[in-house]
Design a protein around this nucleic acid. Structure first.
Length: 191
DNA sequence: TAAAAGATCCCCT
DNA sequence: GGGGATCTTTTAT
């Protein structure tokens, strides 16, 4: 099938450390555009000092402690939004940050929403860029990724057999944990 | 009540 | 390669 089918709920009902690398090469769809996920980071829950879930539920991170397979959108740096897939068991506080996409379709819409992007490679090569490109904002926090207006599809592409691995970007705590995965060689990977 | 930091991006040099 | 933008949430006093 050309467009792909939504990943089932069961896909998300596993630890973020397992789900994250398997999200590589899946397809994120929103706002009439779509892109292939080429970079992710796992946030492991209340025991992960770098996670928003550290120290338990708050108003901001409530979606992280909701059912898996939903979208956690947060505001940061006074001007940016970032998107995560909630994983694990219910109320685990685990999530996978979507860090970069390879644009697949709806590129004209992406450019409209991201006037600063001069090339295709600038459209979604970062966690806040991809939200802007696909029109993902605070109104999408809590969206069901299986049935909602933002979805993640399986179009048959396999994750890389040997993904790139590194420590997570932009954090100041638990900086040593190798919980970032990416598609090696893809130009949209942010670093 | 105040202060600082933040899962970033963009433009300038 | 470096710093400013910009404002919510968190953390300290």
């Amino acid at each position: 099938m050309v467009g792909g089918v939504p990943l089932p709920r069961s896909f998300y009902c596993r630890p973020s450390l397992v789900v994250a690398p398997e999200l590589l090469n899946k397809v994120l769809v929103a706002g009439g555009s779509r892109g292939r996920i080429v970079e992710v980071e796992a946030y492991a829950g209340p025991l992960d000092p770098a996670s928003h879930a550290y120290r338990g539920p708050t108003a901001r991170n409530a979606t992280m402690f909701g059912p898996p397979g939903h979208l956690y959108v947060y505001f940061t740096y006074g001007m940016h939004y970032c998107a995560n897939a909630v994983t694990g068991a219910n109320a685990d506080g685990q999530a996978v940050l979507l860090r970069a996409l390879a644009p697949l379709a709806g590129l004209a819409r992406m450019h409209e929403r991201r006037p600063a992007a001069r090339r295709t490679i600038d459209l979604a090569s970062g966690p806040a860029k991809l939200c802007q490109a696909l029109g993902i904002g605070p109104e999408h926090d809590g969206t069901d990724l299986v049935r909602g207006r933002v979805r993640i599809l399986d179009d048959g592409a396999e994750p890389p057999t040997t993904p790139g691995v590194s420590t997570r970007i932009g954090i100041t705590r638990a900086v040593d944990r190798p919980w970032r995965w990416f598609v090696p060689g893809d130009p949209n990977v942010s670093r």
